[in-house]
């Protein structure tokens, strides 16, 4: 009898006690995300998918100097320069292989023209391997970005190199 009572007591008294932790979470904010419908905001210094910046007059910044490709430890960047109609050096082909990329951010660090940045975007899964070759057109942002304090552009206007005019 005593045994029976003990068992009943366990069910009605101790089990709820054990569920307290679980129950407490019913009333807490969830730690998970309603992912496909809600996106997680990343930290400002997050290294996501690359993008290429432009100047204020919307010319592309990248001059295809090859330093990002040289700095890249995964050998993920391929580029070919060309001469644009004004005789300036520009990228004809600029490709990043996202399957190879390890998102170390060395390209961003190496870039002398403040052209390439690693952005906040982390969604780039696909079923086709070729889609991971990320081309220049896909990377070029429409307008210069101004919001992220950690990806700030010091030179907004095109000027002759070597001239010190820092606009912050």
């Amino acid at each position: 009898m005593n045994e029976v009572l003990k068992a009943v007591g366990n069910v009605f008294l101790k089990m709820p006690l054990g569920f307290v932790v679980t129950l407490r979470h019913f009333f807490k904010k969830p730690v998970t995300l309603d992912y496909p419908y809600k996106k997680k905001p990343m930290t400002p210094r997050y290294r996501g998918k690359h993008y290429l910046e432009r100047y204020d007059d919307s010319t592309e910044r990248c001059v295809c100097c090859g330093l990002c490709a040289a700095a890249c430890p995964a050998d993920a960047i391929y580029m070919e320069p060309e001469e644009n109609e004004k005789g300036e050096r520009r990228a004809k082909i600029y490709e990043i292989n996202l399957l190879r990329c390890i998102f170390c951010g060395f390209c961003e660090e190496a870039c002398p023209e403040e052209a390439i940045f690693l952005g906040q975007d982390y969604e780039f899964s696909d079923v086709n391997r070729n889609a991971f070759i990320y081309t220049k057109e896909e990377m070029l942002v429409k307008h210069p970005r101004k919001d992220n304090p950690f990806k700030r552009l010091y030179r907004r206007v095109r000027k002759v190199h070597g001239v010190t005019d820092k606009i912050s």
């Binding site: 001059v63 100097c65 330093l67 300036e88 050096r89 002398p112 023209e113 002759v160 190199h161 070597g162």
Partner: peptide, 12 residues
Amino acid sequence: NHPLDCPTCDKG
């Protein structure tokens, strides 16, 4: 007076 345009310079 040397411009620091090594990124665009082919001698780089």
